[in-house]
Design a protein around this nucleic acid. Structure first.
Length: 510
RNA sequence: GGUCCGUUCGGCUAGCCAGGUCAGGCCCCCAGGUUUUCAUCCUGGUAACACGGGUUCGAAUCCCGUACGGACUACCA
């Protein structure tokens, strides 16, 4: 299944942080390349000078590094097909644009943006839509309506111009998409897209085709939002007389509620991250949280993203990157958009968290313990983590489930006191203190045996005693097996907590 | 408005290409069970083929239409 001719790329525009839809697109490209023994390339499409955001390119690279998505070639990795940043390739595009003019597939247009905007507004006033197409181009200032002499004069005088694709009239373009199959469109519905801008840079459409060709890209796997541009791209390959790559347009990632493309706004509104890493907007200073900062494990993040739009065809849901690579195929990518579900996302993280060993989790939890002003032995913390990790989705939630191991209750939950602190509780707990003091080897088993024997001898109610005991140790009615708690906090501390509790809660007079 | 894409439980989806299953799984939710607490865990449950035609002995599956949703429609990518 190995094919060294397979080359795919992820080609983001560094206009801001990468959102999870982009990460998923990159992931599918990566998996496709790995699965088929091909190469995966990172190309930066920064042809729009006005929309560059500083730090965005670094953010993109850092994000993939965190996720474990690796590039064989690209801006950070090098390679034989560079440079991999389109602004660094600026010099190569004009010749290609001019080649199309010479072959009659494109033309110079001298309309200014202002002129075109005015025409568009006028059309709108008449409830019409202006389309720069075969009809319109005949009435505008371009190398098709001007004489060759006039055109050359304008070009030489430094008049700003763009190069537009000369869209054929009434021709059916037949395309194939690996996910959607055959797609046909009539060129009459298409317009004369700008290929080369007046600022000397190519547009996306030109740069994309030229670079994919020069970089020998075999499969273009990108978001569905590009499907409407596919006819233009196909026509460009044909105009250049180049071999076309295969195309696959991935379904969109949708917002959790309602319909529509997932956006940064949805994350802010519904309180979940839409970016892999935290992003600070350099202009506004606004901070958007990332999956990493929210406590997602990188492999859980990859796993949940992979399952949004793809499935293995059987009932497995948990996949390592290696397993994904093995199982992935474009054929099993769905056609329809997938809503991002933050609840299931958290479930994925839970699945990973419970599989992480206790020592590692304790290491991650340590800073939180310190922040809470509690000095903890890592070994103790590991044991406590092992007892409660099933209960949480994120490391950050762990502390609330085990802080009582490491500090005495500061207060006693009212409801719990009301529920389980009865008339006899004070005396029972006072007795229990002495029972604990007499246990030699203070293990969970020994303590449990001693306490149960004492309960039996006195004919106390197990539930009542245990709940009162739990209340004094934990401060409320929660937590793991009581004798595991006792064993971990130790004989001395257990007795101390009973004493403190007796003092704080006192006798109940009924 | 135009072009293109899409449509199975509340969500992610299997099944569709090669018509015949009580339409399956996971998340959520609900109910029981286990448990000295809380949780975990176990068992069970609610719940879907957008609609209308056609083809066929038989349609979620093939065809046509309708509705709805989405993407695109910049000298942005």
């Amino acid at each position: 299944m190995s094919n060294s001719n397979i080359r795919v790329r992820f080609a983001p525009s560094p206009t801001g942080p990468l959102h999870i839809g982009g990460v998923r697109t990159a992931l599918y490209n990566y998996l496709f390349a790995r699965k088929n023994g091909g190469k995966f390339i990172l190309r930066i499409e920064d042809t729009d000078q006005t929309r560059l955001v500083s730090g965005a390119e670094k953010y993109i690279i850092d994000s993939f590094k965190w996720c474990g998505i690796e590039f064989d070639e690209g801006v950070a990795s090098g390679g034989d097909y560079g440079p991999y940043r389109q602004s660094d390739r600026k010099h190569i595009y004009p010749a290609y644009a001019e080649e199309l003019v010479k072959s009659g597939h494109a033309y110079y247009a001298f309309d200014t943006p202002d002129e075109l905007n005015k025409i568009r507004t006028d059309y709108e006033l008449q409830k019409l839509t202006f389309v720069y197409n075969a009809v319109a181009r005949k009435k505008l200032r371009n190398s098709l309506t001007l004489t060759e002499e006039e055109t050359n004069k304008l070009l030489e005088s430094g008049e700003p111009y763009v190069i537009r694709f000369c869209m054929p009239e009434n021709k059916i373009v037949v395309m194939n998409d690996m996910i959607r199959g055959k797609v046909e469109v009539n060129t009459s519905a298409l317009d004369d897209k700008v290929l080369f801008k007046s600022d000397g840079m190519p547009t996306y459409h030109l740069a994309n085709i030229v670079d994919d060709h020069l970089m020998e890209i075999s499969h273009v796997i990108r978001g569905e939002e590009w499907l409407p541009s596919l006819p233009l791209h196909v026509l460009l390959y044909e105009a250049f007389n180049w071999e076309k790559p295969e195309f696959a347009h991935l379904p969109l990632l949708l917002k959790p509620d309602g319909n529509g493309k997932l956006s940064k706004r949805d994350g802010d509104r519904l309180g979940f991250p839409v970016f892999p890493l935290e992003w600070k907007d350099p202009k506004t200073g606004n901070i958007s949280t990332g999956f990493r900062e929210e406590g997602y494990f990188a492999d859980a993040f990859i796993n949940l993203l992979a399952m949004l739009g793809w499935n293995p065809g059987d009932e497995r849901e948990l996949f390592s990157m290696e397993e994904l690579t093995e199982a992935f195929s474009i054929e099993r990518v769905g056609k329809s958009g997938a809503k991002f579900d933050p609840v299931k996302a958290a479930w994925f993280n839970h699945q990973y968290l419970i599989r992480v060993d206790n020592e590692t989790l304790a290491g991650l939890l340590m800073p939180i313990a310190i922040k809470n002003g509690v000095l903890v032995e890592k070994e103790q913390l590991s044991i406590a983590v092992g007892m409660v990790k099933e209960r949480v989705n994120f490391v950050s939630e762990l502390w609330d489930h085990l802080d009582f191991f490491f500090k005495q209750p500061e207060n006693y939950d009212h409801k719990s006191v009301k529920k389980c602190w009865k008339e006899g509780s004070y005396n029972q707990m006072a007795e229990l203190k002495d029972v604990l003091l007499e246990v030699d080897d203070f293990t969970a088993e020994n303590t449990e045996k001693a306490v149960k024997k004492w309960i039996e001898n006195n004919e106390y109610k197990t539930g009542a005693v245990m709940n009162a005991f739990r209340l004094l140790l934990v401060g409320e009615l929660k937590g793991p097996h009581l004798f595991d708690i006792v064993a971990l906090i130790g004989q001395e501390a257990s007795v101390e907590r009973i004493e403190q509790g007796l003092h704080e809660i006192g006798r109940i007079e009924n």
